[in-house]
Write a protein that binds this DNA or RNA. Sequence first.
DNA 1: GTGTCGGCCGTCTGCCGACAA
DNA 2: TTGTCGGCAGACGGCCGACAC
Lengths: 396, 396
Amino acid sequence: MKLSSSGLSQQSPEGDKNCLNSELWHACAGPLVSLPAVGSHVVYFPQGHSEQVAVSTNKEVDAQTPNYPSLPPQLICQLHNATMHADVETDEVYAEMTLQPLSPQEQKDVTFLPADLGTPCKQPTNYFCKTLTASDTSSHGGFSVPRRAAEKVFPPLDFAQQPPAQELIARDLHNNEWKFRHIFRGQPKRHLLTSGWSMFVSAKRLVAGDSVLFIWNDKNQLLLGIRRSNRPQTVMPSSVLSSDSMHLGLLAAAAHAAETKSCFTIFFNPRSSPSEFVISLAKYVKAVYHTQVSVGMRFRMLFETEDSSIRRYMGTITGISEFDPVRWPNSHWLSVKVGWDESTAGERQPRVSLWEIEPLTTFPMYPSPFPMRLKRPWPPGLPSFSGMKNDDTGIN
Amino acid sequence: MKLSSSGLSQQSPEGDKNCLNSELWHACAGPLVSLPAVGSHVVYFPQGHSEQVAVSTNKEVDAQTPNYPSLPPQLICQLHNATMHADVETDEVYAEMTLQPLSPQEQKDVTFLPADLGTPCKQPTNYFCKTLTASDTSSHGGFSVPRRAAEKVFPPLDFAQQPPAQELIARDLHNNEWKFRHIFRGQPKRHLLTSGWSMFVSAKRLVAGDSVLFIWNDKNQLLLGIRRSNRPQTVMPSSVLSSDSMHLGLLAAAAHAAETKSCFTIFFNPRSSPSEFVISLAKYVKAVYHTQVSVGMRFRMLFETEDSSIRRYMGTITGISEFDPVRWPNSHWLSVKVGWDESTAGERQPRVSLWEIEPLTTFPMYPSPFPMRLKRPWPPGLPSFSGMKNDDTGIN
DNA sequence: GTGTCGGCCGTCTGCCGACAA
DNA sequence: TTGTCGGCAGACGGCCGACAC
């Protein structure tokens, strides 16, 4: 896995000086984001990719966009390369992945192999994340460090000094160095970052509501990342290519790669994409082939909280059907309709994919009123099956 | 022709408050840029579009990109819409054009119709453009206005005051208002913009070497545009779509539109695109059908100077051949190889297109050593001809 | 425990003419 | 004619504890 700070060029290979432990990237991406291992087999969903482009261009896919009948809704690939990047302007994290579709025979061979689920995403343990207040971002003062965070993450101060103070050096995703004066003063006493802080705020263009993230890693380095609040949107591609052409481009690239079994490249934006659209084959196989789901079944699903930790929400499966039967028949993408136990005005999405949820098979809340009709769904990613209408799924 | 300040959204139609006379857009785009009239017939060159994308993504087209055999190298279209935009972050000007390919019969009908060359691009008359100095952009002072420029473009000062001064209000491409104190002082006397200037410099992130452009229009409004120097590049699309997918997307969009005779949308970036790739049909027909060119012939061609005016450079035609015979056979795009009279280390391009040059037929410098073999080249944009190898062009 | 404020000092912004290219 | 500089005055940046929630 490579990590490079990018944005200026897609072609220049970056030197080692830009390399950085992936901890910071993952911390900025969030606790739910995991990249499949390089070399492993993954499933790519053009629908999910298309949704990410729709969000990025702020434009839904045009209804008149032509289909690519040869492109299956789920494409089994080998992940040849995955590089973590951060936009040089905004620090937005993204991943560049090189995928090679498997031949039909390889798909069969691989789908029914036992496979482990890989290593879970490694969130750093010694870190803190704080949402910036008006005082933190104002030019009038510095940054107020929560007491527990400072004691856990920063090196201890020498309390013989009065007031206790030290210089902290932190590195961001681009391996740039930021120096801060860390001081413990005031009445009551508190931890503050003073000199150097305002330069960081203005350089990163942080505003109240954005978050900063400090990590103390195993090598005794201080890492510093940012996460912007959900302002309208992140980056605007604007004037390069029309959104219609972009949608066509991603479909054409995947279709061409599928036909020729050649590599293609995609970008994954963890913070803007509604869902991961490249997932490990093992996760897919487990969810689609080895998990029983049915209407009425209870489940839980992980979400990220405001302070970058994990929370589980509960819900009930209300239906199982293709998200877009016309354009993407036989697709597992967002095939599960759900209702949420706690839902504030459509806050959580009405559709999820099988591999995103944990069905609670041991304690069903009430007996399923509908029999399970998806016990063994259509084989994934096989073009020869994509036109088949007389299977046993009952959802065509 | 619509003009709107954009960048946040491709879908929201902007209100009238954002509309502005197109003078400023054209002044920022440069004196050589002209947009064909809405409703008129134009020729679209996928090769040129591809070059613009290559520049924007900083990545040349991949050699393995598949061809679209059904897409001719020149596509005759009707221009249904052309909207001028400016990037909301950088103020970079660009145009959004909606094109509809003509049917083969329409192409024939239209190609041999007499057509006027349309109105030339309207450069404003009452304007000035200054490249910013270190003093202009430093935080130590204001903007030094060249004397002739101030007297020509700004409203006259009241010299009864001591010192003479006034408030100027200028509007940029987004119709934002900028207020400046214009004062005539110092020893020797000179025109200066003081209060308000530094805010403009920092808001637009101008640096020494960039240019500003003041226009006094017919409605007695002061317009204010910027032109950045040729720094590495302008905007980086980075993380939305891989450059390969973008190349494929533009080809697929044009091919699909050509097949179905439906509309497609392109963006044209006058400042970053190497050449215009949507030109009026009249210009194309005149250059390709009604102009004699041959190897050895002298020509001249317009270029933009540093101070935004026009200069002619002279050269000699050294060859006539397709730029990319494999991928784009029978293409007129950059089909003329040239040598330049004054050339500083490959400063000017070695290939141009027929419609970019003015052949000097009246005073040939020396007799053409090679007979003209392109007297009546292949008909433009007709797919039925694109595979024809036995024509009289002799370049296959 | 921490967000915001008044107070205060120091730096830098920004307006001026001098001077030279 | 105009680019850069030294001089200077005022604005704002930025460090401090007070105080309240």
